[in-house]
Design a protein around this nucleic acid. Sequence first.
DNA 1: GCCGAAGCTTAGGAAACCTTACTATACTGG
DNA 2: CCAGTATAGTAAGGTTTCCTAAGCTTCGGC
Lengths: 155, 155
Amino acid sequence: MSTSEKRLPVGQLLGLMLRRFRADLYALGQEAGYANLRESHLQVFGNIDWTGTRLTDLAARASMTRPSMLELVDDLEKAGYLERRPDASDGRAKLICLTRDGRRVLARALRAVRDIERVYADEVGSERFEAACRTLQELLRGTPGPRSSPNPPAR
Amino acid sequence: MSTSEKRLPVGQLLGLMLRRFRADLYALGQEAGYANLRESHLQVFGNIDWTGTRLTDLAARASMTRPSMLELVDDLEKAGYLERRPDASDGRAKLICLTRDGRRVLARALRAVRDIERVYADEVGSERFEAACRTLQELLRGTPGPRSSPNPPAR
DNA sequence: GCCGAAGCTTAGGAAACCTTACTATACTGG
DNA sequence: CCAGTATAGTAAGGTTTCCTAAGCTTCGGC
């Protein structure tokens, strides 16, 4: 009974797998000494541009609301990984930029993610792993996107 | 460039996909009139046996702690979907059993999950969908399991 | 120059988990 | 048989990660 075992429902598979991934990544982070970084902060590092990104865009890319993203950004700014710079092209906006430390973290995080993905690829074969990722990505296409639009019309 | 688009990191894929699944399922539940059921309650319905299951086992199967599972079970008992019966074979234990209503919900939920999976399968082809599920399941094998052991030795 | 839209932020809260610690029953070795 | 330890369920309280609602500020067209 190796692979013919009855398969779990997708929900469980996704939930458990996400847990594993987060735990794996968090562990690497802690190992590397970034004790002040939590899993959710990757929502920032995973979506920010090297040249800086506006909060609204960060939120949209991460499919979360602006206040939620704001909290993450505040954390990381306090920790010294981000800084806010006025956006020259729009006085309302601020560009969220990586500091030197932030860039270092991002580079490390990207490497960590790649490492973890490599481990997964080794476990099931890189073709199957990539195929699964592509399938997931395709399932995601044409679905919601950001949880809430730029600004709820407030009625 | 249909599938050659740069793929998101696994973490994002899993997270977003889990969101989609939960939203889909929750929507079906609401549609069916189960307004008092939340997504997390499926952790119970997804792991309980028709003949009843002990809390500890439920928690272990759902990979969560007993207090967490307890809360879910309490909710569902209050809502009339579960009842606790003494376990004849162990005076400490109680069997968490489905009531008639609970059985109805479970049946419906199983159907809903199957329906959703069918939709996914249609979107990407059922072979690719099943392959992805099998890959995930395999990645899950040989990893953590329950978050915390039966009873932390209390130091 | 005014007004709706778009940007960020504040305040407050809810959901889904967790840890710690307690009681009551069961099992086990002396 | 009975002391000690492990296990089932539970209570209390906290953390994390999101959310909604409601500002305030700046922009841009009229």
